[in-house]
């Protein structure tokens, strides 16, 4: 693995709002890398700077300071965009075009022509399961269908890197499962995927590595296992545990001086717990 797919270094993005000298620091000295071939998830609450980071990586916005590189190319470099497929959050495409026409339009923008384009469109429509809706105008597409045609659009020029901004926002569980499977398929095929979301469950299911961003700053980063694992703690998930068994376990723990029960109940998404923990920490820091 020679070159990282995405390399963000000390990225800061400041927005000036209104006429008065008010500033919003959307991204604050952010650094991370997405290795080629991996699925990287940026998670954080609303307004934490996820979309802003993606736009800077795409070159839609200029960094206030720091840099963003895609396969070693500056993000403003137009060649970099040949390597990126981007799906914005809540994507809208021309409502007057059909699914097939939409893909044709984006394909032509990427310089693909003729039978190559035709084959590519057929492949992609099949991939996102929209073959039957290919000739319908997007004005009549459901949210999930829009998201899927959007996903097909990102892949039209066969980019190496796919950037997805909240790919499952507003999509029902079945639809998001479909999209999740697609992302896994992309990974399998060797694409690099950089996605962001605040839906932790999904991130957890597809991402190799995760960065947690809060108020524009990276709080934690690592593989899922690294992030979730707490060395001093051990979790145990029991099945069909009878009350008698539970009382025996309680007794056993009580007999040990050092050990204690921190939490007991039905299992929760561990990543979510971490997420909330960081949010609490953040609140404490702020009030301090």
């Amino acid at each position: 693995m020679s070159e990282p797919a995405v390399e963000v270094k000390n990225l800061t993005k400041v927005f000036s709002t209104g006429l008065s000298k008010n500033y919003v620091v959307a991204v604050d000295n952010l650094s991370f890398e997405v290795a080629a071939g991996e699925v990287y998830g940026l998670i954080g609450p609303n307004g934490s700077g996820k979309s802003t980071t993606m736009k800077v990586v795409l070159g839609l916005m200029a960094a206030s300071s720091g840099s963003a590189k895609v396969f070693g190319l500056d993000s403003g470099d137009i060649r970099a965009r040949n390597e990126i497929g981007f799906l914005p959050e809540n994507p809208y495409f021309y409502k007057h075009l059909s699914g097939e026409e939409t893909l044709k339009f984006y394909g032509k923008l990427c310089g693909i022509k003729g039978s190559e384009l035709k084959d590519r469109i057929a492949d992609l429509l099949k991939l996102v399961d929209l073959e039957n809706a290919a000739n319908r105008r997007l004005g009549g597409y459901s949210k999930g269908m829009l998201q899927r045609i959007g996903l097909a659009q990102t892949l039209i020029q066969n980019p190496r890197l796919v950037i997805l901004d909240e790919p499952t926002a507003g999509v029902d569980p079945v639809g998001s499962r479909q999209i999740r499977d697609l992302i896994l398929k992309l990974k399998e095929d060797g694409y690099t995927v950089f996605l962001c979301s605040h839906l932790l469950e999904q991130v957890q299911e597809v991402c190799d590595r995760v960065g947690i961003i809060f108020k524009g700053r990276m709080r934690r980063e690592g593989t899922l296992d690294e992030l979730i694992q707490i060395d001093s703690q051990t979790a145990m998930t029991l099945e069909n545990a009878s009350p008698e068994l539970m009382s025996k376990i309680h007794d056993l723990i009580a007999s040990d001086e050092a050990a204690g029960i921190i939490e007991e109940g039905h299992p929760r998404t561990t990543l979510e717990r971490l997420f909330i923990q960081i949010a609490d920490q953040n609140k404490k820091e702020e009030s301090a």
Binding site: F105, K108, G111
Partner: peptide, 27 residues
């Protein structure tokens, strides 16, 4: 999509300075 593994190694495709066909597509 079987060819994607090979593009992974290929260098960035160059983009012409100005493409009349892209303008045409947009028009």
């Amino acid at each position: 999509m079987s060819d994607s593994k090979t593009t992974l190694q290929s260098p960035a495709r160059s983009v012409p300075l100005f493409s009349i066909s892209r303008v045409w597509t947009l028009a």
